[in-house]
Amino acid sequence: MELEAKAILLIQQLGFTYSRQEILRSINKYASDIYVSFQHKIESKLLSTKTDAGVLCIQDLGRYLFKIFIPEVEQSTLVLRAFCHEKKLLQKQKRPAEPFSVDFWSDFKVYRTQVKDDEDPLKWDRIRAREERRIDRQI
């Protein structure tokens, strides 16, 4: 329902005419196509003669199957953790550093954009090191 509402709002903002059924059909078709494509890629990797998935440990198999997602997952994880630390939102932290809005994801998106726009080539190493130091202090 949320995706449908956002799609309808976007279409209205762009001034297009629409049919609710056409929107839902298009969204479902696109999502289905992407999911089927994803399934086929995973299946072909699992059954490939190039790499024997049956002998890989679970961790290596996960890396092999999902390697295209690994950099994004790691970076997103780093940014999420850094965001929560800076806003003092984690359980062990006493109180928020500043008043925190109810819209976590909107605030996170702003933070993520700031990190993404940072042109420092070592930004991911810097963020990773800072988060590792924070973890060490917690232990």
Rank of each mutant, 00 (worst) to 15 (best):
F83G: 02
E43M: 10
H40D: 14
N28C: 04
H40M: 13
P71N: 07
L56N: 00
T77E: 09
L61D: 00
E72Q: 12
A53Q: 02
L10Q: 10
R25G: 06
S44L: 04
E43V: 11
K94M: 06
I42C: 01
V115W: 07
S101R: 00
K50P: 06
L9F: 08
K6V: 01
T113V: 09
F69V: 03
K29C: 02
D117R: 02
S26W: 03
R134Y: 13
T17I: 10
Q91I: 15
E43T: 12
D136I: 11
R95V: 15
V36S: 03
R20H: 11
E72F: 13
Q114H: 11
S106G: 14
S32H: 09
L61I: 00
D107F: 00
E74I: 11
I70S: 08
E98A: 01
T77R: 08
Q39R: 13
D136G: 00
K67G: 06
E22L: 07
L78R: 03
Q93H: 09
T17S: 06
L24F: 01
V115G: 00
Q12P: 00
Q39L: 12
L78W: 05
V110R: 11
W124L: 04
G62H: 10
E86K: 14
K41A: 13
L9S: 14
Q114W: 05
A97E: 05
C57W: 02
I11E: 00
D136V: 00
D125E: 13
R137K: 15
F38C: 06
F69Y: 10
E132F: 12
L3P: 03
S76Y: 04
A31Y: 08
L3A: 05
S26P: 04
R63I: 11
G15Q: 02
D136Y: 00
R126S: 07
P121V: 02
G54W: 02
V115S: 05
D33N: 14
G54E: 09
Q91L: 14
A97V: 12
I8E: 01
F66I: 03
Y111R: 08
F38E: 09
S37G: 12
P99I: 12
Y30K: 12
T113D: 15
I27L: 14
Y18M: 07
A97P: 01
D117Y: 05
L122V: 03
K50Q: 08
R81G: 03
Y18H: 05
Y30H: 13
E131S: 02
G15K: 08
V55N: 04
I135N: 05
L65Y: 12
I58R: 08
P96H: 11
P121A: 08
W105F: 14
